[in-house]
Design a protein around this nucleic acid. Structure first.
Lengths: 247, 247
DNA sequence: GTGTGTGAAAAACTTCACAGCT
DNA sequence: AGCTGTGAAGTTTTTCACACAC
């Protein structure tokens, strides 16, 4: 089965907003809050994602408004923490009422940049890569895989999930640039992870989510988040042997 | 292809130590350190896992000793942080030299309980579950999948990776108890995640690594770690739009 | 000299508690 | 009356800097 990369990609691209928009949206909302430095704590961002998930669930249940405790408790957080987190970005609540679920969801998505869809590329079409490509959560949060890259000649030219083309890694540069792709998910073997990351950085990618179990570093403006699944299991097994700390 | 669950499992079990041993090993090493409460910060445990990975890499390169800076820098941490983290558990270093890689690796593994292998069960044999089962990192860190569970009758009775049986979820209780399994990895659809977790808790599991994108809660002594892959991507996209914070 | 282990200082983050809006 | 937004207090975690050991 043959395909023309450019045309495959153009379709996916159409649904995506020019990335530059996001920057403005976020910066408008930032109202450098109470007694803080102006930088948003990393932990806050992690929790915003959790709020999104919880709000989506509430909305599915037709809940109109939720107060800080209602949002916090199912996530194992405190009401004060929720209010503080949201206050970093503005006054989203209604005193005496709480937060309108729909509105709050929109606001948080605007902050995270997920009120528009992001095109994402996958590098490494092995087991894990293929599973991630089918992972519902990514699509639910606004991320669309538009292409995959691999260096196995037997895979190149085929498609994943019947529509995502697997291309030669060399062609990633062009696609990153022409399709305005800013995010890449990397699932390649450990020993080539760093060179793949270097290549992506040189291609003008904005951020990399790395699943290879090795700490790779990225050239300056490129953001990198390393996910090591074994680390999570180790956290857990430590907690089990200790029987302390809730995590 | 038929199989007898009990015999399939016994083999995997043989390679595993009775879990009770771990508790002692860890508690002996804990020397409730400098000026602290005696509880180990969660973040420290996360970093111990990273040290393991880095040490494994150094050992593969035949590096004998490493100092705190050498361990910290590739992981994006500071030397002081490494020393402080390790000091929670004892004096592992040699002044003027650093740390012996092999010895430190053993020590950390003893702390994490991964100096012996752990039998793990997989619940939910969909795409993600199957990919996790093949994920190298788990085996590298001492975790062995011994069985998978699903409720799809077409899957039950088959094997994953040609040796891991897929069984009916009901049979999990018996296997947890007879094989001394303390850890489960859950990759089921969101809507059944909580009931699966409840079932596992009732079966006597020790800890659950949950990949379903919903916050599930576990009955008291059971530890739970939620991993939401979309959260990681959101962290990244926020960093990309902001171009701040290294994470 | 080199590099750990660790108190002390600083920074980051969380919780408290309450004024003030609806 | 109910619940947010936020200073202030409290706690945790990180960084600093140096005495001490090899």
């Amino acid at each position: 089965m043959r395909f023309g990369p450019a045309s495959d990609l153009r379709v996916a691209r159409e649904t995506c907003v020019p990335p530059e928009k996001f920057v403005d949206m976020v910066q408008i909302d930032l109202h450098s809050p109470p007694g803080t430095t102006g930088l948003i704590p990393n932990a806050v961002i992690g929790r915003l994602s959790l709020y999104v998930r919880e709000l989506q669930q509430l909305i599915r249940q037709n809940v109109e408004t939720v107060n800080s405790d209602g949002l916090a408790r199912p996530l194992g957080l405190t009401a004060a923490q929720v209010r503080k987190d949201l206050a970093y970005f503005g006054n989203f609540g209604l005193r005496g009422i709480g937060y309108r679920c729909g509105e709050l969801l929109d606001r948080i998505r605007a902050i995270l940049g997920t009120n528009q869809r992001w095109p994402v590329i996958l590098v490494g079409a092995g087991n894990l890569g293929r599973a991630l490509l089918g992972y519902r959560g990514f699509a639910d949060h606004g991320y669309d895989f538009i292409a995959a890259f691999d260096n196995d000649p037997r895979k190149i030219g085929t498609h994943l999930a019947e529509q995502i083309p697997i291309l030669n890694l060399e062609s990633a540069r062009k696609i990153v640039q022409t399709a305005g792709v800013r995010l890449a998910v990397v699932c390649v073997p450990t020993d080539v992870a760093q060179e793949v990351v270097d290549f992506l950085c040189a291609s003008g990618i904005g951020g990399i989510l790395n699943f290879a179990p090795v700490n790779v570093s990225a050239a300056k403006p490129v953001q990198i988040v390393n996910v090591d699944l074994a680390v999570e299991l180790e956290q857990l097994s430590f907690a089990v042997v200790q029987r302390v700390r809730s995590s």
